[in-house]
């Protein structure tokens, strides 16, 4: 279990498999799960009985913590964040938590400042600004 001991999301050590995998923001998960829930409801009347507890809890959670409700806004958020050469995991943490200041963003995602990243404070500031604009005009 040595691999697990070294796991640390702050340094982006989340294992190769997850690092390469597609991360999902809460708002994206919300769209997927609601779609699936509707499908289940159409197939049978007692859809609520068929859902696993994990599904139910996840759906409640992402509904509560989705920053963006509108599918177009969700797409825009991903598009804007993907301009900054972020790792999938970093992109989703920012999209989920929507930090307001550069300092907050770096505390939430310390790996932003690690290595020889070309990302300076101004770039981060612009990124956060763009995000808050989407929220405003949603």
């Amino acid at each position: 279990m040595s691999g697990e001991e070294e796991e640390n999301a702050a340094e982006l050590k989340i294992g190769d498999e997850f690092l390469k995998a597609k991360c999902l923001m809460n708002c994206e998960v919300s769209l997927i799960l609601e779609h699936k829930y509707e499908q289940l409801q159409q197939m049978s009347e007692d859809a609520t009985n068929q859902m696993s507890q994990v599904f139910e809890k996840s759906l409640q959670y992402v509904k509560r913590f989705s920053r963006y409700k509108n599918p177009d806004a969700v797409r825009q958020v991903r598009e804007i964040l993907s301009r900054y050469q972020l790792a999938e995991f970093e992109l989703c943490v920012l999209g989920n938590l929507c930090p307001e200041t550069v300092e907050e963003a770096i505390t939430m995602v310390p790996s932003l400042k690690s290595k020889d990243r070309s990302l300076n404070d101004d770039a981060i500031d612009k990124m956060l600004n763009d995000l808050s604009l989407i929220k405003k005009f949603e």
């Binding site: 997850f18 994990v54 959670y61 992402v62 938590l97």
Partner: peptide, 25 residues
């Protein structure tokens, strides 16, 4: 969930030892 990850959660129970919260499952 990953060690070092920051996320939002809902508090489900509070006692003198601390509190429990849930983030999805």
């Amino acid at each position: 969930p990953f060690k070092g990850e920051i996320l939002e959660a809902v508090v489900t129970m509070v006692n003198k030892m601390g509190f429990f919260a849930e983030a999805g499952p």
